[in-house]
Design a protein around this nucleic acid. Structure first.
Length: 598
RNA sequence: GGGGCGGUAGCUCAGCUGGUCAGAGCAACGGACUCAUAAUCCGUCAGCCGUGGGUUCAAGUCCCACCCGCCCUACCA
């Protein structure tokens, strides 16, 4: 049965290029999942974009001497190019600075306001005297009033661990420019989270046994202490507040996180408009049979398991104050929040500022996208933090991609091509032949089941087991010794090629690039698994910007497909380059070098 | 301070609701083979399942305490 699947991928923040830790959290898992779902016959809508508002972008822009918009334009493009190069099959990867996004974010705000879940409140907040902008807690530091530690951040003291209020800091100063922040009364809109505690509790309880336990525990625990939360900021870079008296103010904007999570909805609507059927998005958002899967790193759980559901409930009129849905109609809540843990880098935390980092772009300039996709799938931070090491990367690449999988493809096609020039016909099959064929066909169900529940490590491991079995089968059948018995030789090679074809299908979600090559090698025509591309699009204002999109209505199906004998085979070229173990030292040296520079 | 996660063979990790759960891959060592990117296949080696208690007929698996490491704590995925 075909289902509508929304793959909602966390929005990368456009204040710099993204590193491999980022894409291991949201990028590769969401794409493996989406590719599988499409192959299984479901209607996938995979959306995301760059998150471009908020103080950090403004701060970074000031530092570089450009406007926030210029900075966002630049990194939007860099990020879009990187994600495209990784083969992430977004139906639409857009941005938060579009007219459409502004309108939808404002619509959600208005719906919440109409139902009484948003209210104004005057609070004391730190602002920067020189710019008048909100100085977020994390940009204020000073002496801890509890332990006297000098480097305490506004929200917490790293020394004694106590939660702080920036106004209590002794000698507070701005981390941005060192000036003394001013604490002033400022009026902000608050989202009434306590009004959703009951509804959220019911919602989350219903996910018991379905979500990864760490995500659920974390979310349920947070319900204990829900407070109203400010959803506006003193800033001129962002989405204006859509209420009379506020709309035209240049000093108040929606809080970046408020507008960013609305992106899933606004991007779906933008996709529908661009696809020619402006109402098409409703099939993923207002459909009891549709499922919404949200992919992100664990630091985003609170926004996706708490705040975004609360916003949707409020918009729908489903909190303690009830209400009626806004003009878009009632919207579906996330079915599942799939959160990854963190990737560390040779034992240390990724940090752009400390240069403990490998940018996606740099990685892909030296290694294959499929090699990175494979590593993340099989050794990534799926259920616990994991450490990326270059030696592990080289080992996995050489041992599993090159020696096991690439070699199976290469030896099978090479032998068949050399001896027969075509995919040979199978004659009488032996028990061993039948067992081998049954083995690879039987893998579709369990590997698919693991993929459907986002257990990528298990799925990749089980797919690779088929590859190992096939290498074993060839070792036992020894077709290279059967020069005098071409009929038997044909049967063995037919079986081997058929298993290669099955394994190619099983590995397509992880390795779309190399699976496409195998598809062509075995005489397949057309596109096997579609790849994303960047297109320039425009909006009413005339502004042009790049989006990632693609045609994924391709040939790949999650099933065994019988090979047709007689199709010509060319001598194969290696699928994956083998890496010289020396690259481990080179990369470590590179890392040390950049670290030393800063 | 509050919360979460992890500590299982040299390394990276599987082990869901307690009873073939003591496993896989890599590494190491020995052997076979040569179709293939010196790839593949077979075999061997290995672990007081962090520590100490407890529950149970039975505990890596549940409970308590402790030790170590990591993470989140709401503007770094």
């Amino acid at each position: 049965m075909s289902q509508h699947i929304l793959t909602a991928v966390a929005w990368p923040y456009a204040n710099g290029p993204r590193h491999i830790g980022h894409v291991s959290g949201f990028g590769v898992p969401s794409d493996v999942f989406s590719r599988y779902q499409r192959m299984a016959g479901n209607k996938v809508l995979m959306v995301s974009g760059t998150d471009e508002h908020g103080t950090p972008i403004q701060v970074q822009a000031d530092k570089e001497g450009v406007t926030a918009r210029e900075l966002a334009d630049r990194y939007n493009r860099v990020i879009a190019e990187d994600l495209t190069a990784l083969g992430l099959s977004y139906d639409l990867f857009t941005r938060t600075t579009t007219e459409n996004h502004f309108a939808i974010a404002q619509e959600i705000f208005k719906g919440l306001h109409k139902n009484g879940y948003v209210f104004p409140r005057t609070t004391m907040g730190a602002i920067s005297p020189s710019t008048g902008r909100t100085l977020p807690d994390r940009y204020v530091e000073g002496t801890c009033p509890i332990c006297g530690y000098d480097g305490a951040r506004g929200d917490q003291c790293d020394n004694c661990g106590n939660q702080l209020d920036p106004i209590d800091l002794i000698n507070p100063r701005s981390k941005i420019n060192g000036e003394t922040p001013k604490f002033v009364e400022t009026e902000h809109f608050m989202l009434d989270l306590p009004a959703f505690s009951e509804a959220l509790g019911t919602y989350l309880q219903g996910k018991q046994g379905e979500w990864r336990p760490n995500v659920l525990k974390f979310s349920l625990n947070m319900l204990q202490d829900l407070q109203p939360r400010a959803i506006s900021r003193d800033l001129d870079w962002g989405v204006p507040i859509p209420l009379d008296g506020w709309r035209d103010r240049t000093d108040k904007r929606l809080y970046v996180w408020f507008d960013a999570v609305v992106g899933y909805l606004s991007a779906s609507i933008e996709w529908a408009k661009r696809s020619g059927d402006p109402e098409a998005w409703r099939q993923w958002w207002q459909n009891p049979d549709a499922r919404g899967y949200y992919f992100m790193g664990k630091d985003n759980i609170v926004f996706h398991a708490e705040i975004w559901p609360a916003m949707l409930m409020g918009y729908n009129g489903q909190g303690s104050r009830d209400g009626t849905p806004g003009s878009l109609g009632a919207l579906d809540l996330p079915s599942e929040v799939v959160s990854s843990e963190f990737l560390t880098m040779e034992g240390r935390k990724f940090s752009s500022s400390r240069q403990v980092v490998i940018y996606v772009r740099d990685f892909l300039s030296r290694y294959d996208a499929d090699a990175l996709r494979y590593y993340i799938s099989v050794a990534g931070p799926e259920t616990q933090d994991t450490d990326f090491t270059w030696s592990e990367f080289v080992n996995r690449n050489n041992g599993e991609l090159v020696a096991a999988w690439g070699n199976l493809v290469n030896r099978s096609i090479s032998m068949a091509s050399k001896n027969f020039g075509v995919i040979p016909e199978a004659g009488d099959l032996t028990d061993a032949d039948r067992a081998m064929l049954a083995r690879s066909r039987a893998a579709f169900a369990p590997v698919g089941a693991e993929l459907a529940r986002s257990r990528f490590k298990n799925a990749a491991t089980e797919a690779l087991d088929v590859v190992r079995e096939a290498n074993k089968y060839l070792a036992e059948q020894e077709p290279w010794k059967l020069k005098g018995d071409p009929e038997r030789q044909k049967s063995i090679l037919h079986v081997a090629l058929q298993v290669v074809d099955d394994a190619k299908t099983l590995l397509t979600p992880f390795l779309p690039g190399s699976s496409n090559k195998i598809h062509a090698m075995l005489g397949g025509t057309g596109v096997w698994s579609g790849m994303p591309e960047i297109r320039e699009v425009g909006e009413d204002s005339g502004r042009q910007y790049p989006v990632i999109t693609g045609d994924y209505d391709d040939a790949a199906r999650w099933e065994h497909t019988p090979l047709r004998a007689g199709i010509p085979l060319a001598p194969p070229t290696p699928l994956f380059p083998k890496l010289d173990p020396k690259v481990v030292d080179e990369e470590l040296a590179r890392l040390a070098e950049v670290s030393a520079e800063s």
